[in-house]
Write a protein that binds this DNA or RNA. Structure first.
Lengths: 246, 246
DNA sequence: GTCAACAGTATGTAAGGACATATTTACATC
DNA sequence: GATGTAAATATGTCCTTACATACTGTTGAC
């Protein structure tokens, strides 16, 4: 059992009850009353504590789950994921796009190692000192044309990985097969100009525009599974998305 | 009244009923059975047609609204927005970010005109030949440092616009004040290298990396209100987002 | 001692009813 | 004829109830 979640619900307010709950829990998470990892009481108890029906409570939690603040697991319970998420958003999948559009992506593994995680990686994956990760770089091509240069680190307590598997299957496919259920990812998209190394591998010129993407993905248990930095040829790749206002 | 929406609901399927409805309507929209702009029957009738309860029907429509395929308006009805949206996603607001972080953005209006829309603009905003739009370019700076170069077109049947208003208030603020309720936007993020014009205005060098963003925004009535192309200095701007898996 | 069945727990799905509120349309009043 | 009000319509919110299903831990049989 966790804290009884002291929220004030004002039934005379024009603000819908479920939204009051959302705001209250959001505030509690951002304010530190509910630190990351906290287990909430079950829906029925929570509803009773606030004198709400379960559907109303559930609708509130639905929103919080969608916005990435909470994670639910059937038969288990609900947990606070992160207090970092600033805003509700979602986005399309990533390179799975390629296979969906019918193209046949090819992957060349440029390097592969099982090493002690360096400091930035440990921070991104929330690992302690001395933790080991798989670290590798890949070059992805479509129709023989190089498209993306990808550097990734994956925690090593999920599944064994090897070079040949990475060449045949996408990283996410491998991890999903290993039982990982991805729930959310933090991404940052920017731009750089190609250095000599990147230009050579991507078949373009030094100084050409590249799209960069850094990402850390979290699974349904709340642990950070994978972090990486990708660069794409700007002339053949861009991120397309549809944003929905709530 | 619209078409009675012939969907097959299999109550013995392990797929939840509401999700069967989502899939069915999604398919109908993508398949052209429900073209953009179609008015659906009201929730109660639809539920009755499929022998479902209203909450179940509503849950299905909730998802479709969230994914951007449908638009609901209280007291009015539900409408198909677009068949283009391929995937559920959302994202943070845009340059409002700046004011939220406490910075004081400044805007310089570089050009402003009320002109016949050119072909790409007409297509983006779904306007007929001869339609007129406001077209303008702005330079946004933070703490005196130029950050973004923005080119936009806005349909002219919403509100009168002028140069001085744009310098003082954000575009979205102006449009919202004019009664526009934004519902969704299509965005594409990429990269280019700065040309001479861009370099000069953004205070950087020719060949520097820039982040590009093209966007078309749609309001709750389903009409495309605004379209634009922005470029940002890559060394001081990137798009950060949290993706949530459903 | 190992493994399988079972009970407990928490979320997932679904139904049905009731009332609130925003929008539009039609009507009645001034 | 203009204006304000009321009815009709459709979505928004909320409650009660019921059963399904996934996961965990414990108990019991072999």
């Amino acid at each position: 059992m966790a804290t009884p979640l002291k929220l004030h619900i004002d039934r005379s307010s024009p603000v819908p009850l479920y939204h009051q709950v959302v705001q209250g829990i959001e505030a509690a998470i951002h304010g530190g009353t509910l630190p990351a990892g906290t287990r909430l009481d079950n829906e029925i108890d929570l509803a009773a504590q606030l004198n709400l029906s379960r559907p109303t409570m559930r609708k509130a939690m639905d929103e919080l789950v969608r916005s990435g603040l909470l994670v639910r697991k059937r038969g288990v319970g609900t947990q606070v994921v992160s207090s970092q998420v600033r805003r509700h958003l979602e986005l399309s999948s990533l390179f799975d796009d390629l296979t969906r559009t019918g193209s046949k992506p090819q992957t060349e593994v440029l390097s592969f190692s099982h090493v002690d995680a360096d400091e930035p990686t440990r921070e991104a994956l929330q690992l302690g000192t001395g933790a080991r990760v798989y670290h590798f770089t890949r070059l992805r091509s479509v129709d023989g044309k190089p498209l993306a240069l990808m550097e990734n680190s994956v925690r090593d307590d999920i599944t064994d990985m090897d070079e040949s598997g990475l060449a045949k299957r996408g990283l996410y496919e491998i991890l999903r097969t290993a039982g990982v259920n991805f729930r959310l990812a933090n991404q940052r998209i920017g731009a750089v100009t190609a250095n000599e190394y990147q230009a050579k591998l991507l078949g373009t010129e030094v100084g050409a525009a590249l799209v960069t993407m850094e990402r850390t993905a979290v699974d349904d248990t709340g642990r950070a599974v994978e972090t990486g930095r990708h660069v794409y040829r700007a002339d053949s790749y861009s991120f397309e998305m549809t944003l929905v206002q709530r």
